[in-house]
Every structure is written in C-alpha cells, then in structure tokens.
Design a protein around this nucleic acid. Structure first.
Length: 427
DNA sequence: TCTGGGGTCCTAGGACCC
DNA sequence: TCTGGGGTCCTAGGACCC
C-alpha cells in the first residue's frame, strides 16, 4: 500500500514556526511580487479567500487588515521541507518526494491497524521535531492515498492525522462523495468535459468503460481511472532523480522598456540557472530565453517571444550559458515594447561526467570547469555571491516587490545556517 | 495601482528516410 | 486516370501537478 504525507497549509505553517503569534489568525503567504495568494491558514480559508486570489482582491472577501499577509520565503520553506523529508526517509521505505510539501512512500505493514498506529506516531514525531502539522493518507494506489490524505486533513473527527482507504465498500462511498474536479490528474479542462457527460463524481468516473476513457481522452486519464479502481500505475519521478529542465524566471516589479534593464535580468537568471545546474552535477544541451509584456495591461502593446539556442557542447559554465542566453535575448528583444516578465530555461540535461567533448572545445571546457569550481567554492565558503560575472552588476530595476517579508531575524539565519539574501531567492 | 514560479508527460503533426 | 506505406525523430503545444 501507498502512503502520502502532506503538510498542512505548508508555507503558513513554516511562518508560524518562527512566529507563534500567527497561530489562530487568518494568514496568507503571497507569491513573488506579492501578486497572489499561494498559501492560506485554515482561518483564511474560512473567510472564503480562494487559492490564487490576487492580493488586491483580498478586500472583496474581508478587511485586509484582519488578514496577515506575508511575502514568500522559499529558501526557508525548502529547508523545512528537507528536514521533514529526512525524518520520513529514516522511517519508511521508498520515499518519493513529490513536491516541497508532499511525499509518497510504501507503508511498512500489511496490516491496516498496525500501519495506522505507526503513521499516527509519525505525524506526531514530525510535528514535535519540526513544528509543522502534517496529514497522512494510505490506500492501495497513490491516487486513492491522495484522497485519503485530504480527508485526514479536513475531517475534524480524524484527530490523529491519519486516514486510510482500503475496504472496497469504503472506497466506493468516499469516491461517490468526491467531486470529479477533486481527483488528482483531473484539471479544469477535463473536469468540464466529464461534467458535460454527466460524470460528476470520482465514483462515476471510476466506473466508466475504460475503452471509452482511453478513446475520449488519453492514456494519462485512463491511468488515473485505473488508480481510482485501486490499481497502482502512476510512475512518480522522485525529485531525487535529476531534473530534465531547469528554469529561472521572474515577473518584474514594474514594466521595463530599457533594453539594458531587461538584459540585466537575463544575465542574472542565466547565472542562477547555471549555478543550480552545477549543484546538480548536470550540463545542458540548450538554453532558451523568453521575454514577454504585461498581459493585464490593455494600454500597452503586447509582445512575447522566445528563442532557444543549442550549445556546441553541453555545458554548465556560467560564461557559456550567459553568452547563449544573451545571443537569444538579442534576437528577440524589440525596442518600443514594455516588458514585464522574462526567464531563462536550460534543457537536454545530462550528468556532467558524461559529456561528449567537441574536439574544438575540449581545452576551453577544462579551463571553464576549473574556473567555475573555484568561483562556486569561494561563494560557498562565504555563503554569498561574493564572486560574480561582471555583467550582473546592474541596479536590478527588474527586482520583484516583496513588501511583506517577515523580519530576517538572527534566529532565522541560525536556523537555516546561511545568510538569507532576499535579493536572490532561488526556489 | 495591484494577477507567481517552477516542473512533467503526452500527442499531433511535420520532416525525413527507405 | 494514376500519385505507397511504414517507420523514426523532433518540436510545439496542451494538459496536468504543486
């Protein structure tokens, strides 16, 4: 059987670890640029604030002064996530970290009661060690475990944070109470389409003829259906397995028209991406740069474009990636438009010890590699970006707004073991 | 005034090959 | 009038996830 551990209101719970006065109050965590709501405390959910709600619309639901609004601190959340996952990893087999606040695993026993008792202890342990409340569901498939974990989180009668979905009769009852849109893998489009056919619950979906699901939709949807029937068929890629692409992008704090300022952002994103790539010991085969305007502004001409460059030899060198990102940028930048967002993505990733060197590049490659190792070493030693490439010294006019950051206290620095640089908060 | 930042997988269709 | 068939690879775009 599969278990799913899910952190309750994760980002809000992380903030509460450092500021217990937030307990019992409506709290929301805002996305980059303080744009929209990406996490809500239960009290905020009760007020009717929806997920993804633009911050400026909070007033439609409640007096914004009653709601504590916080800018996201992903470095902190990521660190807390690692702590939780490492506790989990030491207690269960086959941990698959699915996202920053969720992980699947295999339950240790065949017996339902023993699993329940074991997992209830685990819920307590995580809360005691890390301070974040979690819920666990377990079932024959991951999709059913997901539904079980939601019940564990939402149903107040469940006091130990664990719910299981194993007996077929129980599964049928729960599925018939689960709206089709709540099924993992059924998004907006599919839900609308299924509703149009009268399929409004997970139960009805699970009992559609599979041939029909396959013909109407795809193998992916059919797999979801089989999962609801208790069959195990979702292949999860644990994040411990290397990424296939990496992206760094930001919405700017304001629209930019100056070429120099947008270019500044591209250089910064390319550097950040290169560093993450080296952290993963991977190299990229191609680099893509994209820019776009502000699609919420009708008063400005909108422009959006991207350009992908293939590298002669796969690389993770900052200099190489910045170079190609800028070549791509120069080919898509148009004067006379207002830019609101840009990003750099690398793809075609492979382990750096498997690079096939192009004969023309081999000498250069070795030198760059040594240089990058030296720079990374220095930056790591001083916990900061002490050494940077010359181009990334602009005024960062593209920087996002983060006006609701909790104070970056000494406690936090000690807790995370690093200097917390709000200007450079990679996820 | 103000609307995030990552990722993955699958499919359709075109290019190209024999 | 007649104008193959089957395969692979790549890319763009759409759908989903948190």
């Amino acid at each position: 059987m599969y278990g799913l551990i899910d952190c309750n209101n994760f980002f809000v719970s992380c903030e509460r670890v450092f500021n217990p006065s937030l307990n019992g109050r409506p709290v929301v965590v805002l996305s980059n640029n303080d744009g929209c709501v990406i996490a809500r405390s239960n009290e905020a959910k009760v007020l009717g604030i929806p997920m993804g709600c633009p911050a400026f619309q909070l007033k439609d639901y409640t007096d914004p002064s009653q709601v504590v609004q916080l800018s996201a601190r992903h470095i902190v959340y990521s660190d807390i996530s690692h702590r939780i996952m490492s506790i989990m990893g030491s207690e269960v087999e086959g941990l698959e970290v699915y996202s920053v606040d969720e992980a699947f695993f295999r339950t240790p026993y065949d017996d339902v009661e023993r699993n329940h008792a074991f997992l209830a202890r685990l819920v307590k342990k995580v809360h005691r060690y890390v301070g974040v409340p979690v819920s666990i569901g377990f079932a024959p498939s991951r999709s059913l475990a997901k539904i079980a974990s939601h019940i564990a989180k939402k149903d107040r009668r469940i006091t130990d944070g664990v719910y299981w979905l194993v007996r077929p009769e129980a599964i049928d009852i729960i599925l018939s109470r689960t709206p089709i849109a709540d099924v993992w893998g059924i998004g907006q489009r599919l839900a609308a389409s299924l509703l149009g056919r009268g399929i409004d619950t997970a139960y009805k979906f699970a009992h559609m003829p599979s041939g029909m699901v396959r013909a109407l939709y795809s193998v992916v949807v059919e797999r979801t259906q089989r999962e609801l029937r208790g069959e195990d068929c979702q292949q999860i890629n644990p994040v411990t397995i290397a990424h296939k692409s990496l992206m760094t992008s930001r919405t700017f704090g304001r629209v930019l028209t100056d070429r120099r300022q947008v270019q500044d952002a591209i250089v910064h994103f390319a550097q950040a991406t290169a560093r993450r790539l080296r952290d993963e010991h991977q190299v990229a085969a191609s680099v893509m740069t994209y820019v776009r305007g502000d699609h919420f502004r009708d008063d400005l001409p909108y422009y959006s474009n991207s350009c992908e460059m293939r590298l002669r030899t796969p690389s993770s060198s900052t200099m190489t990636l910045v170079h190609y990102a800028l070549v791509a940028f120069n080919s898509i930048f148009r004067e006379g438009f207002a830019y609101r967002k840009a990003g750099v993505m690398v793809s075609g990733l492979t382990p750096d010890n498997m690079v096939q060197l192009n004969v023309w590049d081999s000498e250069d490659h070795g030198k760059q590699r040594s240089l990058m190792q030296a720079i990374d070493g220095i930056n790591q030693r001083y916990n900061a970006n002490v050494v940077q490439l010359a181009p990334d010294v602009g005024d960062h006019s593209w920087s996002p707004n983060q006006s609701h950051l909790a104070p970056s206290s000494q406690t936090l620095r000690i807790y995370t073991g690093q200097i917390f640089d709000t200007d450079d908060a990679p996820i």
